[in-house]
């Protein structure tokens, strides 16, 4: 069963110029993206800065209104299109999609104690009794492996890793059916990253959670995700199961991305694929396949024809004209 189906999502930001703030152009931050998330799985949305992955997640959370497309969300046995709902009608569905933030410092209100931070969503959604709330907060703290005694502490007393646990507890409070985790470990120290990743995996196994995991670090992604979706300049280039995509990428960009990740073993000095030039500008992308100016397999057709995302084998979508003929290199 799919918890979420995103169909042809677009988000354009106007570029305003001059004194009258006339619209001079558009940044196509998200330019026709489609994917789905199955119940109980982790879909990782990866790509480099500016590829639109964060914009996609903000649209799903409706922190940004999408320009076009559908966001079909399955809740209480029916399917609603979050993209079309006005803000007020959205309210009852908000509680079902929660978020874990990147910055453990900005995500907790410095003026509230932990019990209030985690209890706030409960209170807003009708758990009036303080006793009941404390009980639930205790339960949630236990789930994220923090002592219940920390309830009366303020966030400033916690380390980055502990704050991230509090953030996860808050996201869990309302039994959401989807959790959007936006770079949840990238601000943490290496030795703490592992604790949080393990916790996310644990919670998923215990509670059957569904994650949309937005990240740029492919090593982290490999540890947590079931499927990986790769974006480049506002478009989806490839979606596949984690093991498949890492072992045998089908899109040249995925291949380059994988080869660029430094491997923590000096004996594996791999031949990296060094991409020429910079990432395309989403305000002025190249015609055809956005990746063609940097692609070493590009042919004439790539410069004019925009490749569609097609299922090249079961559960594998690639948007490349040469997907069937290329044999690309992955990592073991």
């Amino acid at each position: 069963m799919n918890v979420l189906e995103v169909v042809n999502l677009r988000k354009y930001f106007p570029i305003r110029k001059g004194l009258l703030r006339r619209i001079a152009g558009q940044v196509r931050a998200v330019d026709g993206v489609s994917f789905h998330i199955k119940k109980g799985e982790t879909l990782a949305l990866v790509g480099e800065s500016g590829c639109g992955k964060t914009t996609v997640s903000r649209c799903i959370l409706r922190a940004l209104p999408p320009s076009e497309g559908e966001i079909r969300f399955a809740v209480d046995g029916k399917v609603v299109d979050l993209a079309k709902l006005p803000k007020r009608a959205l309210r009852p569905y908000r509680r079902h999609i929660q978020m874990v933030f990147q910055d453990p410092f900005s995500s907790l209100n410095p003026r509230m104690v932990i019990a209030d931070i985690i209890g706030e969503p409960l209170l807003i959604n009708g758990m009036r009794s303080g006793e009941e709330r404390r009980k639930r907060v205790k339960e949630l703290l236990d789930m994220v492996q923090l002592p219940a005694a920390y309830m009366n502490r303020f966030p400033h007393a916690f380390s980055g890793g502990q704050r991230q646990r509090v953030g996860i507890a808050r996201a869990l409070a309302l039994h959401p059916s989807l959790i959007v985790a936006d770079e949840p470990v990238s601000a943490l120290d290496v030795s703490v990253q592992a604790q949080i990743l393990n916790l996310l995996l644990d919670l998923q196994d215990r509670l059957g959670l569904t994650y949309l995991f937005v990240a740029h670090d492919l090593s982290v992604v490999k540890h947590v995700s079931d499927r990986v979706a790769v974006m480049y300049v506002g478009r989806m280039v490839e979606i596949a199961g984690t093991a498949d995509i890492f072992a045998r990428p089908r899109h040249p960009y995925t291949e380059a991305l994988l080869s660029a990740v430094p491997k923590p073993d000096p004996r594996l000095k791999s031949e990296r694929i060094i991409l020429e030039r910079d990432v395309a500008d989403p305000a002025n992308p190249p015609p055809g396949c956005h990746f063609h100016p940097r692609c070493r397999y590009a042919v004439e057709r790539c410069k004019v024809d925009t490749p569609a995302l097609q299922e090249v084998e079961p559960n594998r979508w690639v948007s490349c004209h040469r997907a069937h003929e290329l044999m690309l290199r992955g990592v073991q």
Partner: peptide, 13 residues
């Protein structure tokens, strides 16, 4: 404890 791109998917660190 460092996540590695060489790891088996969905393994604990």
């Amino acid at each position: 404890s460092i996540p590695s791109i060489m790891a088996t998917p969905r393994t604990k660190l």
